[in-house]
Simulated scan of single mutants.
Amino acid sequence: MVAAAARMELLPPVLFLFLLLAAAPATAAKFTCNSTAPRANTCQALISYTPSNATTTLAAVRALFQLRSHRGLLAANGLPPSTPPPAPAPSPVRVRLPCLCSGGVGATFQRPTYKVRAGDTLDAVARGVFAGLVTFQEIAAANNVSDPNRVAVGQELWIPVPCSCDPVAGQGVVHYTYVVPQGSSVAGIAQEFGTTEETILSVNKMADAKSLLAGQVLDVPLRACGSNISNTAIDRNLLVSNGTYILTANNCVMCGCSSNTWQLDCQPTQGLSTSACPVSKCGDMFLGNTSSTSTCEATKCSYAGYTNTTSFTILANLTTTNTCNAAGMAPTAQPEHSSAFRVEGWRWTDLVVSLHVVLLCLGYLRQD
């Protein structure tokens, strides 16, 4: 480390500055975070992390970001609860971390941290270890490091990954810290994550879509599912985006986000003992159970949060949803994008119609 720093000192000042700027990521990111409502100055944010090694395991990702549980990492990526820690991590892999708003900007709270190894520089830590989620300048500022090229082996650094807790257009969202891949466009990113170009440009204070750069760290707000959680519940600010689930109520309840109804779908977590998790019911119905009350209505025992004032209690209440469309007709069993029977890319109904046309044509030719 000292030898490397000495070699850098031999460079002309102008050349040194050029190399320093060339090594930096496309842009530093400061996510606006002004949430001031009770309990809203902290939240759970999602981070997109691309491992440098294709063989990186879920266990390695958990260790890097100091995640408290393996289940939490599985939940952030929508992976089955039975997925083992040695399984390969998806690329990119989503990491759920606590976000803290302070001074109008947001950064992950206390985690992750990194212990400096021999040969490390702050730029190598920022770009190599944490895949460009932060810049070396941000790490230096957060840890009061005056010289980014002189860090002590064994020194523990806080890595302030940008995040946010702010609502967007008056709606609660899950903010996703996203490093822009090469060849991306604002329109493509908006389509991939179910938002709009205008929203991305506004949230990130970008003048226009042409200013997007590869390696730029974007704040992508993900739509969150609505819920029936009580305003008095401990987890009343629970936000879950599509493609993920969350373990809440001391891990006793698993809540996913339905892209069809955009409502939380919560069930008791499988594999936990009833002694650790109290039973939650709506009359004779258990939490998560559904019954049809009519052709167009379904009643569900929905999750309503948990309390721990006098004792640990999981709340639930009955909710009724309309399962018919505006014309009063029940939805079809097989939507257009379903896995209905196909022959070499053809739907079965298309094949029948085509055969019918062919037979009519053959009959016409025979008459001639």
Rank of each mutant, 00 (worst) to 15 (best):
C255N: 02
S302E: 12
T244V: 12
Q267K: 13
A276N: 14
S241L: 03
L247V: 11
T310W: 10
S291V: 15
N289F: 04
C257Y: 01
S258P: 12
C296H: 04
S291Q: 15
C255R: 00
P268I: 12
A304Y: 01
A233Q: 02
N251C: 06
A298F: 00
W262F: 14
S280P: 11
D284W: 03
Q267H: 11
S275D: 15
C266K: 01
V240A: 02
A304L: 04
D235T: 06
T293Y: 03
L222Q: 02
T232Q: 07
F312Q: 10
S227A: 10
C301N: 13
N250A: 11
G271L: 11
L247D: 08
T261K: 01
S292G: 10
T309R: 07
C277W: 08
N289G: 07
T290S: 05
N250R: 07
C277N: 06
C255F: 01
N242K: 01
S241Y: 01
I229H: 01
G283H: 06
L239Y: 02
T290R: 00
T248Q: 02
G256R: 02
T293Q: 05
K281H: 13
S294R: 01
A249K: 02
T244C: 09
C296G: 09
Q263Y: 10
E297D: 15
S280M: 09
N237A: 07
V240Y: 00
T299W: 00
Q267E: 14
Q270M: 12
T307V: 14
T307R: 05
P268V: 13
T310E: 14
T274F: 05
V240R: 00
V279H: 06
S259C: 06
